[in-house]
Design a protein around this nucleic acid. Structure first.
Lengths: 241, 241
DNA sequence: GCTTGTGAAACGTTTCACAGCA
DNA sequence: TGCTGTGAAACGTTTCACAAGC
């Protein structure tokens, strides 16, 4: 651990577009929420929005919204606010969803099949392009809202990842097999894993990891109800597992 | 007096005797992860675990683990660590999952039906005891792993919540109807809502709220992959297979 | 008028380091 | 020796307050 040299007080000379120095994690998480709100405003034909308005629906202060967005550049227009369409394009570019990511889904159980049919990814920059499962009964089945995907055997994992240039995988598997499958995905060159198994995965540093544990979210509700009763601040909480 | 009394915006006060004074939000979130790890250790017949061991699998420091647990009392045994079984019982008590919560699921689409069949809630203190849907074609259908639940009409919402003493609802609905249904749930006396619709809900202060937006999680992965490349909260030295 | 962007202050969380106990 | 619990220091995030621009 390097001790801190005199690194305070230096003016940030790094203001080149495209290169962003250091962004707080919470800011990045909120970026997705801003995007969601802005897309809603666009559907309502709204042209601009102020930091105060944007923050109000999300339970944030106007200063927070401005600081968050200012982390990535100067997008606002004083006296006007933020232009909805422009801001959407900028956030998509920042998040990296201004292009389509090919996604692999592993595990065609109830949850897995539901995700393949999930409409919420449409227009968000993600497309599930392959589904794998272990179970011989499931292999060969057609899945998806239009039944356009065929479940493939796990044996084809590496081949599918490479052939379809897949960078993100969603794991809907029993806890016991999640880690070995994650290992195989990493080996095959996957860059990010979204894990729905209720277990902690270990992956090498450069591989991105996010976890969604349904029971965990319910537990947080139970705590808020029984202990807290007062609301804590942030609604959304993605937490790496 | 410009700003002294002006802080009344956020409800926060909870200083009842017998209740734990003020616990950082991040600590509470990690509590669920500790519980999950401890339950895994119990299955492996482990009797005790140190803060260092517990933290390592989760990518946390030992000091962090100790501080988190110390927020709620003194549970550790110097020179020994934490007794697995005892700690599980304590965390369940703290989270409020040392009893069973009746859960209502609203929306019997793909995702909703998958959650009803989801085995991960078993033994975690949550039981889905009713399923509602709008669609006349779905009403009357049997759902659940053993097909033991019948989908009921939305009209029975308030009656079902009261009769079955339901305190938590899971929303698997299109964004457009999520808010009106949330309003009806609040009206019926629900205490917490887990929202899977990709929209921001507004609920009165005393009602607990959590949201899971699948697109948001994928966006965070996309950002980590394209911008970050380095992990935000890195567990140290990783190892591939 | 209204609204952004931004230093500086306020606040919250994590890490450090060590006393104390088994 | 091994480990917890805890003040204090380090670090990170949010809020404040206001100059500057539309």
């Amino acid at each position: 651990m390097a001790s801190d040299e005199a690194r305070a007080g230096l003016p940030d000379a790094d203001r080149r577009p495209g290169r962003v120095a250091h962004v707080p994690g919470p800011s990045v998480r909120r970026l997705s929420l801003y995007l969601r709100e802005l897309e809603g405003l666009l559907r309502q034909q709204r042209r601009t929005v102020s930091s105060l308005q944007l923050g109000k629906t999300l339970g944030l202060t106007d200063a927070q919204v401005r600081k968050d967005l200012a982390n990535f550049g100067q997008f606002g227009h004083p006296g006007v606010g933020y232009r909805v369409e422009e801001m959407i394009a900028q956030i998509r570019r920042i998040l990296g969803t201004d292009r389509v990511w090919n996604v692999l889904l592993v595990g065609a159980g109830n949850l897995g099949r539901a995700l393949v049919s999930y409409r919420g990814f449409a227009g968000k920059g993600f497309e599930i392009v392959a589904v794998l499962d272990n179970d011989p009964d499931k292999v060969g089945q057609k899945v998806g809202s239009g039944s356009e995907l065929e479940v493939l055997s796990l044996e084809s994992l590496a081949e599918v990842v490479r052939r379809l240039r897949i960078e993100i995988a969603i794991l809907c598997l029993p806890s016991e097999v999640a880690q070995p499958i994650a290992d195989r995905l990493v080996q095959a060159g996957i860059k990010g894993i979204l894990n729905f198994a209720p277990t902690t995965l270990a992956v090498p540093g450069p591989v991105a990891l996010a976890g969604v544990d349904l029971a965990v979210h319910l537990e947080q509700l139970a705590f808020q109800i029984s202990a807290g009763q007062a609301r804590t601040k942030p609604p959304e909480t993605p937490h790496a597992t």
